[in-house]
Amino acid sequence: MKKIECVIMDWAGTTIDYGCFAPVSAFIESFRMIGINVTAAEARKPMGLTKIDHIRALFEMESINSAFRQKYGRNYTEKDVESRYAEFQRLLFATLKEYTGPISNVIETIDILRQRGIKIGSTTGYTKKMMEVVVPEASSKGYKPDNYVTSDDLPAGRPYPYMIYKNMCDLGVPSRFSVLKYGDTISDIKEGINAGVWSVGVILGSNELGLTEEEVKALSPEELKQRMDDVRKRMYAAGAHYVVNSIDELPDLIECINARMENEF
């Protein structure tokens, strides 16, 4: 019988850094330093890509591209991308340790999954050097997956499937049907779909929702529901098989997926 044997999780906005705030401010500030205003919504849109691809995606946005041409009288070049990426890294590394706290119920839910024999892998848009900061800090706070993969030595990062395949190799998971990818961005959803695994999105704490815990609590129930529904629609439109509100729904969802596979395969 096929069943879920491995859950591959994203990091910022999924398991740590509620709201995925560490990269957002660094992206905004790196562009501000060359006189280009980037909104939080714009900074969040490509989230989940490798960070240099994220910079490229920002430059390609019409509003940012137009502002750059107007200010500098030319189109951006790869040198501009590399310059903003270098500044982004400097800004990110200055504060990265502060954004490594586990999101509520992550540690408890992973304990439940492990008790059921499920392996915990992970992928990320961060580089290996960034993860050398994140991993020990998150571990000291109680979050430690069985494996993590960056795109440094692979053909590409998200939305390509290579980090998922590397997790499967590292963890000895033989079938894609036994893998569930869990993340908070559209790139996460597409990564799972492109790998041919179960792709599940999460709303609360996500980059897509883009709110702190305090902001979530301050919203009226009606406003929060509307914003969550908007995220849910975007994730399903991107191809998600399922979307959950929070990670504590994951164990029951996995049981449903297992039952579905038992009946369909």
Rank of each mutant, 00 (worst) to 15 (best):
E98N: 15
Y99M: 03
T100G: 09
T100F: 01
T100Y: 02
T100K: 12
G101H: 08
P102C: 07
I103L: 04
S104H: 11
S104G: 09
N105H: 14
V106F: 01
V106E: 15
E108P: 05
E108F: 09
T109P: 04
T109W: 06
D111Y: 07
I112A: 05
L113C: 03
R114Y: 07
R114H: 09
Q115W: 02
R116M: 10
R116Y: 07
G117A: 11
I118Y: 00
K119G: 04
I120G: 00
I120A: 02
G121P: 01
G121F: 02
S122V: 06
S122M: 07
T123M: 05
T124C: 05
G125N: 07
Y126L: 11
K128V: 04
K128T: 14
K128I: 07
K129P: 06
M130R: 11
E132M: 14
E132K: 14
V134W: 01
V134E: 00
V134G: 01
V135Y: 11
E137Q: 13
E137L: 04
A138S: 15
A138F: 03
Y143S: 03
K144H: 15
P145Y: 12
P145R: 13
P145S: 12
D146W: 10
D146F: 07
N147I: 13
V149F: 15
V149R: 05
T150A: 07
S151A: 15
S151N: 08
S151Q: 02
S151T: 05
D153G: 13
L154D: 06
A156E: 13
G157E: 02
G157I: 08
G157H: 05
R158H: 13
R158K: 13
P159V: 06
P161A: 07
M163E: 06
I164F: 01
Y165A: 05
K166S: 08
N167R: 08
M168I: 12
C169G: 11
C169Q: 15
C169H: 14
D170W: 04
L171I: 05
G172C: 05
V173T: 04
V173P: 01
S175G: 05
R176N: 09
F177D: 13
F177I: 14
S178V: 08
V179G: 04
V179K: 02
K181S: 14
T185H: 06
S187Q: 14
D188T: 08
D188H: 09
I189D: 01
K190S: 04
K190Y: 05
E191M: 08
G192K: 01
G192I: 14
I193K: 07
I193H: 00
V197G: 00
V197R: 00
V197Y: 02
W198Y: 14
S199E: 10
S199I: 14
V200A: 08
V200H: 00
V200F: 03
G201C: 12
I203M: 02
I203K: 00
I203F: 00
L204Q: 03
L204F: 03
L204N: 03
G205S: 10
G205W: 01
E208A: 12
L209T: 12
L209Q: 11
L211A: 10
T212A: 07
T212Y: 10
T212L: 03
